[in-house]
Simulated scan of single mutants.
Amino acid sequence: MSVPPSIRSGLDVSRETLEKLELLERELRRWQSIKNLVGPATLDQIWDRHIVDSLQLLDLAPEAKSWVDLGSGAGFPGLVIAIVGQERGLNVHLVESNSRKCAFLRQIARLTGSSATVHEARLETVIPGFVGKADVVSARALASLDQLLEWTEPMLKAGTIGLFPKGRDVGTELTEARKKWTFKTDILPSRTDSEARILRITSIESHS
């Protein structure tokens, strides 16, 4: 399945990068029948629901050189960011505890020649090694904002930017998180879902 014309016209990437994204789509469809990497209902919306939705995060941290993606799953957003960010020298670390998903991530990183390192481990064991060493930490559809802040607090305090896409319950999540945390956040619109928002967090302090 090729890139829908409406999406192709809006992608500001080179022909080589577009071909790598198309390879990601083909491989995801091939692996999906065996490994069930993404929700089956989203398979016919790979480009807008997964690829473009992931890609919009890159524009929110254009100077980033080191990126950590938590709970990478089938590679959204981390693998897409690694493929597109390759031309700007971006190094991406994909943290995922599921072995079959890690196998997929490694395969696509190898086929596309992307600067993506796969960490097959629980994120709690990996995060300490990136404190003060990553420009961005991201997580998509992984956990509540409160839980994400709990995990990433050491990184955010050290200057890492947090980019967390959220759905229609973003207001509730912000209210709950502010009971425990004081943080600076930009609430940004999503290009792919009018009800979704992207939280860009740049500072944090615990109330305790």
Rank of each mutant, 00 (worst) to 15 (best):
W47A: 03
V68Q: 03
K65I: 04
F130A: 05
P128V: 04
R30D: 12
K184S: 14
L37R: 06
V52T: 13
K133H: 13
D186I: 00
I198T: 07
D169L: 13
T182F: 12
L21K: 02
L70I: 15
L90R: 01
R26I: 09
L70A: 01
G129L: 05
R110N: 13
T17K: 00
A82P: 00
D146Y: 11
D135M: 10
T182R: 15
M155E: 05
I161H: 05
I34K: 15
S72T: 15
W31I: 13
H93R: 06
K157H: 04
V137G: 04
P154C: 09
L55V: 03
C102G: 11
K184N: 14
K35S: 10
V136T: 04
I187V: 15
Q32Y: 04
L174Q: 12
D186G: 00
T112V: 08
L199W: 05
L57E: 14
G162E: 11
I201P: 03
S6A: 13
L156P: 00
Q107M: 00
I187G: 02
T160L: 08
G71K: 04
E22L: 07
P77S: 08
P189T: 13
K180S: 06
K65D: 04
T192Y: 02
R8F: 08
A61M: 09
T182E: 15
G73Y: 01
E19P: 00
R8Y: 04
S66W: 13
D146F: 09
S99N: 12
L105H: 02
R200P: 01
V38C: 08
P154H: 10
R100W: 08
L55K: 00
E16A: 11
I198F: 04
W67R: 03
S114V: 10
T192W: 01
V84L: 05
H93A: 02
A109D: 06
G78A: 09
K184L: 11
S33A: 14
S138N: 10
I204A: 09
R29I: 07
A196F: 06
P189C: 09
S97E: 08
V95G: 01
E195T: 14
R29M: 01
A177C: 05
P165V: 09
A41C: 02
A109P: 07
K20W: 03
V136N: 00
L24C: 06
R8N: 10
A177S: 08
T182S: 12
G129D: 11
D12R: 13
T160M: 04
I204S: 03
R168S: 07
G78R: 10
S33R: 15
L156T: 10
P4S: 07
G89L: 02
W151Q: 03
L43R: 00
S114L: 01
P77C: 07
T192M: 06
L57R: 01
R100Y: 11
K184T: 15
T125G: 12
F104A: 06
L57V: 08
A158V: 12
A41P: 02
A196E: 05
T152G: 02
E176T: 14
V84C: 05
L163H: 07
H93S: 09
I198H: 03
L11T: 14
C102M: 06
E16L: 12
S54F: 07
G159S: 14
G73Q: 06
S2M: 07
L23T: 13
L11G: 12
S99E: 14
E27K: 13
S99G: 06
D135H: 11
G73A: 01
I108E: 05
R191T: 12
E150A: 11
L94N: 02
A61V: 13
W47C: 04
Q86H: 06
W31L: 10
